[in-house]
């Protein structure tokens, strides 16, 4: 029984190091501190377990989250039709590959990608939400709308010219302030 908890500790610590998203690493560390606190309890040290539970699950989580605020987040909206989501919530292979390419770009530029699938119309997204990029797909042409203050846009253009997609073509547009 104790051995299972020890194996869980090894698995969670390796996963927390290997994951690509820092927000998920914080959650893995929460599970890690839960498990190690249980191990302390089983070894007969409840006072150490109490301190580990307080520090590990609350204080370090809050400190990590506050530190993550300094890390930039790149919000990408993907405008879909309502019936385009297939069963199990999975997208088709081509769309998954497109998203993988964008995530690779964000990792290279030291940004954290946050991808949101939306069924709202384009004007509504532009008016209502905070965004960096909006992707709209029509007849194998992906139109990429960028925010007026998006200073990574030129490097994104260069990156996408090198990493061409087998099916889609790209078209770049900058949103003017007048549309708002």
């Amino acid at each position: 029984m104790l051995e299972i908890a020890l194996i869980l500790i090894v698995i969670t610590s390796i996963t927390a190091i290997q994951t690509r998203y820092l927000r998920q690493a914080v959650l893995y560390l929460g599970l890690f501190s839960m498990a190690i606190s249980f191990v302390y309890l089983m070894y007969g040290a409840p006072d150490v377990a109490l301190a580990e539970a307080i520090i590990g699950s609350t204080l370090s989580t809050i400190l990590f989250i506050v530190a993550l605020q300094k890390y930039k987040i790149y919000t990408i909206y993907y405008a879909l039709q309502a019936d385009e989501l297939e069963e199990n919530g999975q997208l088709s292979i081509h769309k998954q590959q497109l998203i993988k390419t964008l995530e690779k770009f964000c990792t290279k530029q030291e940004l954290e990608a946050q991808i949101i699938y939306s069924t709202e119309p384009l004007e509504h997204i532009i008016a209502q939400h905070q965004y960096a990029l909006i992707l709209v797909e029509k007849n194998d042409v992906i139109t990429i709308y960028a925010h007026p203050e998006n200073y990574k846009f030129d490097s994104l253009k260069q990156f996408l010219e090198i990493e061409a997609h087998p099916r889609y073509h790209y078209e770049f547009l900058k949103v003017e302030e007048d549309i708002l």
Binding site: R23, L27, T61, L68, I73, Q114
Partner: peptide
């Protein structure tokens, strides 16, 4: 805390 952080998109 984590849920609020995700909900407000980092702010």
């Amino acid at each position: 805390f984590i849920a609020l952080y995700i909900q407000r998109k980092g702010r």
